[in-house]
């Protein structure tokens, strides 16, 4: 397993832990492809909480245009985004 893959797994598990503890949704199993906008990120405050968490946890900086359904679609897309940001900082 390469370093990138190890990092990816760490980020995935960290994000799953974050969503399950911050926005508990009993009865819903959170997987890599679960639809975040309809299940967890249902309002602006939750999105901003996620933004603050990403910035603090991974040391990345987000901009306004990062707030979109492509990036926040699921754990997989969010992980790809974090990896991309980490590779450019």
């Amino acid at each position: 397993m390469s370093n990138v893959e190890i990092d990816r797994e760490k980020i995935v598990s960290e994000l799953i832990h974050f969503f399950q503890t911050e926005f508990p949704n009993p009865g819903i199993e959170l997987t890599r492809t679960s639809d975040l906008p309809s299940l967890f990120l249902i309002d602006s405050l939750r999105v901003l909480t996620t933004v603050i968490h990403l910035e603090q946890q991974f040391g990345i900086s987000l901009v306004e245009s990062d707030i979109n359904a492509d990036i926040f679609q699921n754990i997989e897309s969010l992980t790809n985004f974090v990896l991309t940001k980490l590779s450019t900082t």
Partner: peptide
């Protein structure tokens, strides 16, 4: 209503 809107 989804805050993030639809994917295009």
């Amino acid at each position: 209503m989804s805050f993030l809107g639809q994917k295009q």
